[in-house]
Simulated assay, not measured.
Amino acid sequence: MSSAWSPRRKVELAASRYPARLRWLAALLVVPAIVLSQLPGWAMLLLLGALVVLVRGWRLPQPVALELHAQTLTVTGQHTQVMERPLRVIRHGPWLAMQTPKGWLHVFEDQAPVAELQPFYQWLWTNRKHS
């Protein structure tokens, strides 16, 4: 990481354990709706099997690295994206979701220490769009 006086910051993000938990939590919320529906038994089993396949294949897009230049934020993940101005940003405690032109990206608390992410939180807050 750069020095405290440098206008450039970079943080490498570790893998998070939360996306897997969110996938299975979403499945647990859908299962009662399928079971309580008035569908025949074979249709319920088919939907429950499809749900398991869909949940196992779903991947939450997460960045691998964040780099803050003087006026831009570079997000490296599946696609490298450069943002001069953030779109919508949701921050709830140490969890951060940011909308980019290619979709939503999520940064969880276990990917990096909050102290390393603080400059990114500040940049996103001060450069946000006011509607």
Rank of each mutant, 00 (worst) to 15 (best):
N127P: 09
R56F: 04
R8F: 13
R59C: 00
Q78Y: 05
V53E: 06
S16Q: 07
L68H: 06
V52P: 06
R56H: 07
V82G: 03
T76L: 10
D110S: 01
W95M: 12
P94M: 09
R56M: 08
R23Y: 04
N127R: 15
R59P: 00
P40R: 12
Q118K: 14
S37C: 06
W5N: 15
Q122P: 02
T72W: 12
M44P: 03
V114E: 13
V52F: 05
V30Q: 11
A112W: 06
V114W: 11
F108C: 05
K129D: 11
W42F: 14
L25D: 12
K102C: 13
V31C: 02
V30D: 09
L36C: 07
V114S: 13
R91F: 00
R9S: 12
A50T: 11
G57E: 05
L28H: 12
T100Y: 03
P40K: 09
P86A: 01
L124V: 06
H79K: 15
M44V: 13
S2N: 14
V30I: 15
L47A: 02
T76N: 07
L13K: 05
G49V: 01
L29H: 06
R56K: 11
G41D: 11
P19L: 10
S6C: 13
L96A: 00
R91T: 03
V35F: 01
A33V: 11
S2F: 00
V11A: 06
Q38N: 14
V55C: 04
L54Y: 02
V30Y: 04
L54M: 13
H106I: 13
R59N: 07
L124T: 03
G49C: 07
G93R: 04
Q111F: 02
L36Y: 08
L48E: 01
L29P: 00
P61Q: 02
M44A: 11
R23F: 03
W123M: 08
V35Q: 04
S37P: 07
T100V: 03
W5I: 07
R91P: 04
Q38A: 12
A15F: 04
M83R: 08
W5M: 14
D110F: 07
